[in-house]
Structures are given as structure tokens and as C-alpha cells.
Computed example of a mutant assay.
Amino acid sequence: MSTRHSGPRPRKANPDDPPVQRPPVGPRGPIPGPNFLGLEGRIAIVQAQVFLLAMIVIAQLWLVTDALYELLSGRTADLGWLALASGAIFALALLITFWPRRRIEGS
């Protein structure tokens, strides 16, 4: 049994991959596409996001620790406020994660 494919299409490692097209060719060779990942300031934005989310994770861990301490000691009066603060911080984390996306014009 032969492992070579004799049809007009070459075999793909993943058949669900989209078709690959060659880049447009100009008078000096291939024209590079826009580098949206390397836009100015993008690295600083991502670094700030990572730093702020790390601080939020630390705050969430502190809130969970405090809530468990309050629950196990029998003082349940502050649990609602701790849950509310945790939910607000979670919403802030979602905002920090998804809001500062740079929009690409024309798409």
C-alpha cells in the first residue's frame, strides 16, 4: 500500500486548515502584510494588562482568604460585602482584559 497521494491536492496535516495564499508580489518581490501585532504601544498595553490582572488575582486571593476566615469563625455579617467586592473586582478584571483592544480600520 502506497503512502503517497497521487491526486491533484497535496495531503494536509489538518484538513480543516484554510487555504494558504501567496502574498502579493510587487516589482521588488513579495509585499509584506501589515504587522498589527507590532503596533506602537501594544507591548506596553499588554504589560500593563498583565500587571493589573496579577494585582487583581492577589486581591481576589486575599478576599477569598478573608471570607473563609469569617465563615469558619462564625461571623457571617461581612460575607455579603466580601462577595460584592469580589464580583466588582471580577468585573474590573474582565474590563481590563477585553477593553483596550485596538480596532483595525476597514474590518
Rank of each mutant, 00 (worst) to 15 (best):
Q60S: 07
V25S: 08
P19M: 08
R75I: 03
P18M: 05
P100I: 00
Q49F: 00
G87A: 14
D17W: 09
T76D: 09
L79V: 04
A88L: 15
V64W: 04
L72K: 12
I45Q: 05
Y69G: 11
S2Q: 09
M55W: 08
G7H: 10
P15C: 01
E105C: 09
R11Y: 10
V50D: 04
L82W: 03
F98L: 02
G106T: 00
P18A: 03
G7N: 10
H5C: 13
L68E: 12
W99Q: 00
A85V: 14
F36R: 11
R101L: 02
P34A: 15
V25A: 08
Q21T: 11
V64F: 10
R103S: 13
S107L: 12
G33E: 07
L37H: 11
A88T: 10
R11P: 05
R101K: 02
G29W: 04
A48L: 12
L68I: 08
A93R: 01
R103H: 09
A67L: 02
L61G: 15
D78A: 13
P23W: 06
G26M: 03
I56F: 12
N14H: 10
P19V: 13
R28V: 04
A88I: 15
S2Y: 02
Q47R: 15
P19Q: 09
R28N: 12
Q49E: 06
P32Q: 03
G87P: 07
P100M: 02
D16R: 09
T76W: 06
L79S: 05
A59F: 07
R28H: 09
R22Q: 10
H5Y: 11
L71W: 09
L68R: 05
M1F: 07
F90W: 14
P30G: 05
T65Y: 10
Q49C: 01
L71H: 12
F51M: 08
A91N: 05
V25C: 10
G26A: 06
A88N: 05
A54E: 14
G7T: 15
S86F: 15
L84E: 15
G38Y: 02
V64G: 02
T76I: 08
P10Q: 05
Q21L: 13
A88W: 04
A88Y: 02
M1W: 07
S2I: 06
G87D: 12
R103I: 12
E40A: 15
I89S: 02
I45A: 08
W81C: 02
I56V: 14
A13Y: 06
R75Q: 15
V20P: 00
R9T: 06
R22L: 13
S107P: 01
R28K: 10
P30T: 13
G26N: 01
R42D: 14
R4Y: 10
L94E: 01
G7C: 10
S107K: 07
